[in-house]
Amino acid sequence: MIIALIDIALLTFMGATAIAILRLRSLFAVVMLSGIYSLLAASMFVTLDAVDVAFTEAAVGAGISTVLMIAVLALTGERERTPSHTPLVPLIVVGLTGAALIYATFDMPAFGDANAPANLHVAPRYLNDSFGEVGLPNVVTSVLASYRGYDTLGEVTVIFTAAVAVMLLLGGRKGDDAGIKNEPEADAEANEGADADSDPKSGGGGTA
């Protein structure tokens, strides 16, 4: 009963945050609100007993990505341009996709159903035998690090690849870690930036 009330409260807050994000034009406020949204999602994962996922969501969604977004805001404008196109087509696309996803959930087993396919395949073996085979009280760690160690190696490689990609895109030559002393490129980007950013900058200046 209490859990249901907490769930309703969290969902209401998430909905309110999402609507506020939609309506705001100040990107700084949008970044802050998306951090709050992540924190609410993390609380939601806690009520679903997925504390490991909640931990990740709180650390990455509410923490790191907010900081990175603010770092990006320092490079671009802080106000969103008023969209020139009508929101009708995106609204229809999002509405149809959302309706299809909700329709798909009707086929899903009830939350926590013991006869759900996910609970019948390998889950019983992990829950029953993992303590004898791996010896860890936290079954999540046993599955992630041992039974599914291959997948986790892939995930770490994904993070490695992401860091390499950001280094290639934003980093400069060797020994030039800030990536700002690359004169010809920096000049070209500055010119491009001036062309592309002239509108939001002037708009932001006008309103501020």
Partner: peptide, 11 residues
């Protein structure tokens, strides 16, 4: 690394 690269860029 990602933070350094983002924060190290200038406008």
């Amino acid at each position: 690394t990602i933070f350094f690269l983002f924060a190290g860029r200038e406008r």
